[in-house]
């Protein structure tokens, strides 16, 4: 059901004019609304006898011209965020690979505990895991953040890869075994590379979520973008710059995340073109994509178990 055009009759000249007029009216209303918000924020306020300057008053934005602030934000904040995200991403993929292999093991003693472990980690807030590692393992904030993110996303990636492994055509494994490969060889050399490639868009979408989740480090006190802008610089420059600093953090996050999501979509389109011609849906939400992959995998599983 792409596009609602099937649902309507083709609009005639009257309907088209109506839609154009409504479109223009909405645009005017929205612009007026934004203008009102801007004006309200910008209006000077009285507070306890002092007049506070508006939110967009130049007084509040003087720090933007301060090169030292920018070097602090980029050097400590953005660097802290990217460093934590990059290390956590590599570790998460490694954990995911190990978990997916253990989870699809033929030995029940390995498979079932791994499944329980994955469910356990998936159902818990990352924040709780960060706090747990920080307080119990005493690793310091950086490793608490990185390892919590790695374990949580590793569990999700593991589940994704397992779904990819199960969803492969059975002929792949049968062919590998029939040319004399051992089961492990078949898994590592034949099945796993294909599963990984098919699931790559979901994994990258999950890594975008990981990057966003590094902002949780604000709560456990690791100096990343959010903590640096709102806490360190907020107390350095004073509370009246807090709104400005929030805006800066917002824009920086938006730029980083949009760039990465754009990359993820490009990758999804590219893999789709190469391996699954016809199905062109890019991964928007890794959770949903994972759900689909799991369902397809279990459908395939029950098919192969049923009467031949």
């Amino acid at each position: 059901m792409s596009g609602a055009s099937v649902l309507f009759d083709a609009p005639g000249p009257k309907a088209r004019r109506l839609s154009r007029i409504l479109s223009a009216v909405t645009a005017v209303v929205v612009v007026a609304g934004l203008g009102w918000v801007f004006a309200t924020l910008n209006a000077p306020r009285e507070s306890g006898g002092i007049t506070l300057p508006g939110m967009f008053d130049t007084v509040r934005w003087t720090i933007v011209a301060d090169p030292e602030m920018w070097s602090f934000i980029i050097g400590v904040g953005v660097w802290g965020t990217l460093r934590a995200a990059a290390v956590a991403a590599v570790l998460a993929i490694a954990i995911g690979i190990v978990l997916s292999l253990l989870r699809s093991s033929t030995i029940a003693w390995v498979r079932i505990p791994t499944a329980v472990l994955i469910e356990f980690f998936r159902g818990m807030p990352v924040l709780l895991m960060m706090l747990f590692i920080l307080l119990v393992a005493g690793t310091g904030q950086y490793w608490a953040v990185v390892s919590a993110l790695a374990i949580y996303n590793g569990a999700l990636i593991g589940e994704t890869l397992r779904a990819g492994l199960v969803a492969l055509p059975r002929g792949q494994r049968e062919a590998a075994l029939s040319v004399g490969m051992r089961p492990l060889q078949s898994k590592m050399l034949v099945e796993f590379p294909q599963a990984f490639r098919q699931m790559l868009p979901i994994i990258v979408a999950q890594l975008v979520v990981l990057l966003k989740d590094t902002s949780l480090a604000y709560i456990v006190g690791y100096p990343e973008l959010l903590r640096v802008t709102l806490n360190n610089l907020g107390s350095f420059y004073g509370n009246r710059y807090l709104f400005t600093l929030w805006c800066i953090a917002f824009v920086l996050y938006l730029v980083i995340d949009l760039a990465l999501s754009w990359f993820a979509r490009w990758l999804a389109r590219r893999t789709d073109r190469r391996y699954r011609t016809g199905k062109g849906a890019a991964v928007e939400d890794p959770n949903q994509a994972l759900l689909m992959a799991q369902a397809v995998a279990s459908a395939r599983e029950s098919e192969s178990r049923g009467p031949a």
């Binding site: 909405t26 929205v30 959010l226 929030w246």
Partner: peptide
Amino acid sequence: PIATLRVIATVYTEIIRNTPLTLVVIF
């Protein structure tokens, strides 16, 4: 069918989806 509404919804979705929750809660 109204183009402006479509644009607004798309921009809203893109912005909120790419903002960390912590930032929204702090706001």
